Simulated assay, not measured.
Amino acid sequence: MSYGQQQVLHGISLEVRRGEIIGYIGPNGAGKSTTVKILLGLTEGYTGNVYVLGQPIRESGVAYKRSIGYMPELAELYESLTAREYLTFIGELYGIDGAEADRKAQRMMELLGLDDVYDARITSYSKGMKQRVLLISSLLHDPDILFLDEPLSGLDANSVMIVKELLAQLAGQGKTIFYSSHMMDVVEKISSRIILLHNGRIVADGSFKELQESSKDASLEELFNALTGFHEHRRIAEELVEAMREDGR
């Protein structure tokens, strides 16, 4: 995939199986978002073939999207709507009866501690509350594949524990989770398979244990730094501290 003269993805080739939790990681600009947008049918102009649920997406139209849930890192919610209005609308887009979508959404809001603001306008929500609404919107239609981009951003500790357990249970039911995050400790713990993208190419693919054994690195963060060639974090931090202490003389 290229944007003008800039090639963003270089021969990406992978197969994702049912029930896997894929930790899809890489530095900013590595091509993670572009990959996901291609899989979601939001970006065209790429070369090669993409199959979702066994079908080529170029020929599937929008039909396959009914089996996909997507939680972007930054989403433009219709904040003038209440959560009831927004989630019922999303449910109907996926073909769920309005009353059924309302019932499911209200139950999920209750479970995530938002039942008292179900009829409040989303503009009054905190970032963490909006994140929980986005999560519900991605789950409402019981998708087979779930794409999550930084889903834990802004969530409190209790919500983080719920989401981590939720993903494990969904994977146990055969759902496929495609998870992108910069929180290496979370990716390390929840992923059954980790794919590391660097400069548009896959440079590592395997379970954390397999990647750890191949590189002799103790943590995913250390592995990430080793494979992406970034070793400047300590020096940059030290220089930032020095810059803070400069008094202008």
Rank of each mutant, 00 (worst) to 15 (best):
I202E: 10
Y78D: 10
M244D: 11
M183G: 00
I145V: 15
N28W: 00
R17G: 12
N199S: 13
L140P: 04
A30G: 06
E238W: 02
H231E: 11
I136R: 00
I38D: 05
Y118S: 05
F147L: 11
Q169L: 14
E242L: 12
A226N: 01
D119Y: 15
S219E: 06
I68G: 02
L9Q: 07
A157I: 12
T228E: 06
G31L: 04
M109P: 08
Q173C: 12
L227N: 04
L170E: 11
E100K: 01
R107I: 00
S138A: 15
M183Q: 10
E44N: 12
I195D: 11
M108C: 07
A243F: 01
V241W: 03
K127V: 13
E76P: 10
M1Y: 15
E242Q: 14
S153K: 05
A75K: 05
G174E: 01
T34N: 09
S2F: 15
D119R: 04
V203G: 10
A99C: 08
L114W: 04
L148R: 01
N158G: 12
D247Y: 14
G200Q: 07
T47R: 06
K37I: 03
G26N: 09
S215D: 07
G4K: 04
Y46A: 06
E59W: 11
P151V: 00
K130A: 06
L146F: 00
S124N: 13
L220M: 07
E73L: 05
M244R: 14
A226I: 02
D156H: 13
M244P: 02
A204F: 03
L77G: 00
V8E: 09
A101W: 01
G48P: 02
G29T: 05
L211I: 05
Y118P: 06
T123D: 13
L42S: 11
I22W: 15
F208S: 02
P56N: 12
E85P: 02
Q212I: 00
S33N: 14
L53F: 03
G45C: 10
E76A: 14
D116M: 07
K130P: 08
S2I: 01
L152K: 03
A75F: 12
E85W: 10
I90W: 00
A218P: 00
Q106R: 09
S159H: 13
I136H: 11
S13T: 10
F230K: 08
E188L: 03
A243Y: 04
E213I: 02
N199P: 02
S13M: 05
V52C: 13
Q106A: 01
S124W: 02
G200Y: 15
E44R: 15
Y179P: 03
Y86W: 06
Q212M: 08
K216M: 07
S180G: 05
I96R: 08
T34M: 04
V186G: 03
E210R: 09
K104T: 07
E246D: 14
I195G: 02
Q5R: 12
I122Q: 03
D142T: 09
F89Q: 14
T228P: 01
D119V: 03
T82C: 06
G23I: 04
K65Q: 07
I25S: 10
G19F: 15
S138N: 11
S33F: 08
S214W: 05
S124H: 01
M1L: 13
T228D: 04
